[in-house]
């Protein structure tokens, strides 16, 4: 019988614990596929955050290190400095990377740290049951913005990839999403480029991925995909925000 689809060997056999319709799992699979396709799995060391993806250590087939909340990029920095020959990636939610760990994110970009950060933005704190995040949309109801995010009191969503792209040491910054096959293919392409930038030693690479959290958004999986597309996407600058020129890649 012809195999039409197989699980990538970048993932272990441990079943995901994610809620139905959550796109964290899609992002794991893409990451793992690229690790395998680029032949990085053996040299890869991943850093897990505290957040819904905090248990991804059990899912990725490479060596994994679990960090404290907000410190995945600091930990990844330590790993990479200790083993410059390894391939190092961090995975973080928007609370981890844009709130408590914002200083770590920007500072790694400033240093041009040769690591790749995968930033999963679901506009909410999933792990802790749906509180407001720096990327929560204005008017969006969460358990700590029960009347909707109030612009006057709590500001507007932080566009972290846009901010990171302003920093010179950031070599590659992309803002992508996973609500349709077309977007999923584009996300995989962005991960591939980001990984290649690290391998080429060109600097910090940062891929922001808009993702769903149907559970805390209070939506069905289908509604969540639609909300991502119609409400979230217009609010963040999408696409490749920064990429080295062909000449820079050659050098």
């Amino acid at each position: 019988m012809k195999a039409v689809f197989t699980k990538t060997k970048g993932l272990t056999d441990t079943p995901f614990h994610y809620c139905p319709g959550c796109t964290h799992g899609v992002i794991h699979r893409l990451t793992a596929e690229v690790l395998v396709e680029m032949d990085l799995l053996e040299r890869a060391i991943g850093v897990a955050p505290v957040g819904c993806t905090g248990f991804c250590e059990n899912y990725f087939a490479c060596d994994m290190v679990g960090a404290a909340h907000g410190r995945a990029i600091a930990v990844a920095t330590g790993v990479k400095r200790a083993r410059p020959g390894s391939f190092v990636f961090s995975l973080q939610g928007d609370g981890d990377g844009a709130a408590i760990g914002l200083a770590e994110t920007i500072s790694a970009a400033v240093r041009g740290e040769k690591i790749t950060s995968i930033f999963v933005n679901n506009a909410i704190y999933g792990m802790t049951g749906g509180q407001m995040s720096p990327t929560t949309l204005v008017g969006q109801k969460t358990s700590t913005s029960p009347y909707g995010r109030d612009r006057d009191a709590t500001g507007q969503p932080l566009d972290l990839p846009l901010l990171v792209s302003q920093v010179e040491g950031a070599a590659y910054v992309a803002s992508v999403s996973v609500e349709s096959p077309k977007e999923i293919i584009a996300t995989k392409k962005a991960l591939r480029k980001a990984f290649a930038i690290q391998e080429a030693g060109l600097g910090y690479s940062f891929v922001s991925i808009l993702s769903t959290c149907p559970t805390t958004w209070g939506m069905t999986p289908v509604e969540a995909l639609a909300w991502l597309k119609t409400a979230m996407k217009p609010r963040f600058r999408m696409g490749e925000l920064k990429a080295p020129t062909a000449k820079e890649v050659e050098q």
Binding site: I45, R71, A74, V75, R81
Partner: peptide, 12 residues
């Protein structure tokens, strides 16, 4: 950040 970088290096 420093102590968590040390955590990473030791983990490696």
């Amino acid at each position: 950040a420093a102590i968590n970088m040390a955590y990473g290096a030791a983990a490696a």
